[in-house]
């Protein structure tokens, strides 16, 4: 117990942020220098990060019990972000072990790092639970939702790799534009957007967002054009290192199926919980609705693979859109829209 008294969960998590950050740098370095030692140490760092992340979550659980208000550590934005990083890490490690796609680490590690970095800005106090949250459904709901989110995050990373490998100019234009819009929304969220001013600023926001999207789209497609010119045959080192398009396509799809199942389970557990807390299993609350929107987009994506000739490109479009919806469900709704989940901010 002596160790417990010295180490605080928040301190561990702050440290782990840098471990994920370092892993990200090593994975990137591996793309550039392609030295096995780099990616191998990156994997080790990722594993250390994951173990530390686990310890942080368990410790926080213990800390809440020591405070006499014992509850699962999944109840506010800080805790959910720490858990989000954890789910990304474990999912990535499993995929790396199973499919040997180390190049994916260059996306998974930074996502885990960003989640924890954003967590560092949140209120870290352990607060007692309000009565509505005191339910056994809490743990099931949070775990299923976040496994879903993490799978979609990893699938997003895979879709980006697909993009790089396919060197598709149109596709990269769209991805750039989407990234631009996402960046604009995230900036708005980070800077603390006021809900009251929404409609007055919506017009301006639309044009700014469109401008940013256009710019980002052009920039990305220009980069892809440049890459194509410098390496016309696709014999370049980076291109060779990346898995085949077929493998990437299948892996993205499998990851999305995994995410879809857990998102379904997340919506269902949330629904059953809402029915026992508020007497309605569905009330079109913005968070609920946005999780449904995400579900519908990925549902459409899964069906799109049944249409002849739609694999690959269109699948990537929809998985990029889907991840945009995931980000909005997770961050956008709490900040921009009002509803039952507002405690999470």
């Amino acid at each position: 117990m002596a160790l417990l008294e010295i180490l605080e969960s928040t301190a561990i998590v702050s440290f782990i942020t840098f471990v994920y950050g370092a892993a990200a740098v090593l994975y990137w370095a591996d793309w550039v220098f392609e030295k096995p030692v780099l990616s191998r140490s990156a994997t080790w760092l990722m594993l250390i990060g994951f173990l530390g992340n686990t310890a942080g979550i368990v410790l926080r659980w213990i800390e809440s019990h020591q405070m006499g208000i014992g509850r699962a550590p999944f109840t506010n934005l800080y805790e959910s972000l720490v858990f989000f990083a954890w789910t990304i890490a474990i999912l990535y490690l499993v995929i790396e072990k199973q499919y040997k796609v180390r190049s994916l680490g260059a996306f998974a590690a930074p996502l885990a790092f960003l989640a924890l970095a954003y967590a560092a800005l949140q209120n870290k106090a352990i607060m007692p639970l309000m009565p509505a949250l005191k339910s056994n459904w809490l743990i099931a709901h949070v775990i299923t939702c976040f496994l879903g989110y993490a799978a979609f995050a990893v699938a997003f990373g895979l879709a980006v790799i697909y993009l790089i490998k396919s060197r598709d100019v149109g596709l990269s234009w769209l991805a750039g534009a989407l990234a631009g819009i996402a960046a604009a929304i995230l900036t708005v969220i980070f800077t603390g957007y006021q809900t009251d001013a929404f409609w007055t600023l919506a017009g301006a926001g639309f044009f700014i967002g469109a401008g940013v999207a256009l710019g980002a789209g052009f920039a990305t497609s220009a980069v892809v054009n440049l890459v194509k010119k410098s390496d016309p045959g696709g014999k370049g080192r980076v291109n060779k290192m990346l898995p085949d398009l077929g493998v990437l396509d299948e892996l993205t799809y499998q990851t999305i199926l995994f995410g879809f199942m857990f998102l379904t389970a997340g919506i269902i557990t949330g629904s059953v919980w809402a029915n026992s807390a508020w007497g309605r299993y569905w009330s079109w609350d913005p968070k609920e609705t946005w999780s449904l929107i995400t579900w519908l987009i990925y549902g459409a994506m899964i069906h799109s693979r049944l249409v002849r000739g739609w694999r690959g490109r269109r699948t990537v479009y929809l998985s990029l859109f889907g991840f945009g919806a995931v980000l909005f469900t997770y961050f956008g709704v709490n900040t921009l829209l009002k509803g039952l989940h507002s405690y999470a901010t």
């Binding site: 079109w284 913005p286 609705t289 946005w290 449904l292 929107i293 519908l296 987009i297 549902g299 459409a300 069906h303 799109s304 049944l306 249409v307 919806a325 709704v333 829209l337």
Partner: peptide
């Protein structure tokens, strides 16, 4: 299946309006 995809995405878009 194309109709399914169209309907799924349309319901999604309509739901956005409500939020």
């Amino acid at each position: 299946v194309k109709l399914s995809i169209f309907l799924l995405l349309t319901v999604a878009a309509a739901s956005v309006i409500g939020t």
